[in-house]
Nucleic acid binder design. Structure first.
Lengths: 153, 153
DNA sequence: TCGTTAAAGGTAGTATGCTTACAATACGTG
DNA sequence: CACGTATTGTAAGCATACTACCTTTAACGA
């Protein structure tokens, strides 16, 4: 065990690797093919129907290019519709299909449930402490990210 | 702010995004083109010269395929040599070049220093608490990852 | 109205980080 | 020794997650 393994950068990467793997296992268990970003996009679109890709990107802290690809795949799967916004022909209006809403309703409880599994090594108190610290750090570092979270006013 | 933004999975992804961005900024500040994985590989190889790609992958918790590509790029940059291990012709002996050792020596203090910046929103006590909790969670979830950490005996 | 600026989405290119599959090589037991 | 098995590296393919750049379109000031 070198000091490398105690560095925040490494630990955070490891936790992310574990979280993504657990997410994938759960989806596979349901026979679904959905990634964490795709879930985030569906969730944000359900709460904010009709937004464009750049706004969506800001809501879930991704860059526009990545979200373009994610929306492509959600559209191919029939979960999202993408149409030119006639009020601003640069942007695309994104709306969940019925299948998209149904998919989201089905997986929301699963995704909520799996969150505890990511931190299964921690007690309830420790998990709460971790979430509080992680929230604080993520908020403080928001502007250091390439794709900051942009919460609408 | 939806509940989504308080989910460990999202927070961890955000922290990783922030950490990678800070790493990239620091490297760019030094005029270098080195990624976090590439640093991890150089660090592990400096301590364990002559290991093969699979062993390296286990030491830094990545899969073999990813490390194959990383080593490719380190070799192209002249930081690592890769040669067939005559004792086991399946594997490749990886050794840092002088340039690789020099590069590592140059960036180790920078990388160590930047760790605090990742968690700049936390006080010293909070940062220590975060690291302890993250270490515990990462260790507990190690086997859930697709590429678990394999510490040599 | 014209010209500058800015914003949205796209393409191309790079690097992670995986999956599956396969060739070459080593290793085990019968 | 032969055969089945395991391991190393790699190829092909997919999905993030970016950068840099370009086109289209909108907004705004003079």
């Amino acid at each position: 065990m070198t000091i490398f393994h105690r560095m925040p950068g490494h630990l955070i990467r490891r936790l992310n690797q574990i979280a993504v793997s657990i997410f994938q296992d759960r989806m596979q268990g349901l026979g679904l093919d959905l990634t964490p970003v795709q879930f985030a996009a569906l969730d944000a679109l359900s709460d904010n129907p009709g937004i464009d890709q750049a706004t969506l990107a800001g809501m879930i802290a991704h860059d526009r290019v990545t979200i373009g690809g994610v929306v492509d795949r959600l559209q191919t799967k029939g979960l999202v519709t993408r149409s030119v916004n006639e009020k601003d022909r640069r942007s695309r209006r994104l709306v969940l299909t019925e299948a998209g809403e149904a998919m989201l309703a089905r997986i929301v409880p699963v995704v909520s449930d799996l969150q505890d599994e990511i931190l299964c090594g921690l007690s309830d108190d420790e998990r709460a402490a971790f979430i509080a610290l992680a929230s604080k750090a993520a908020e403080a570092g928001n502007d250091r990210s390439r794709a900051p979270l942009k919460i609408r006013a």
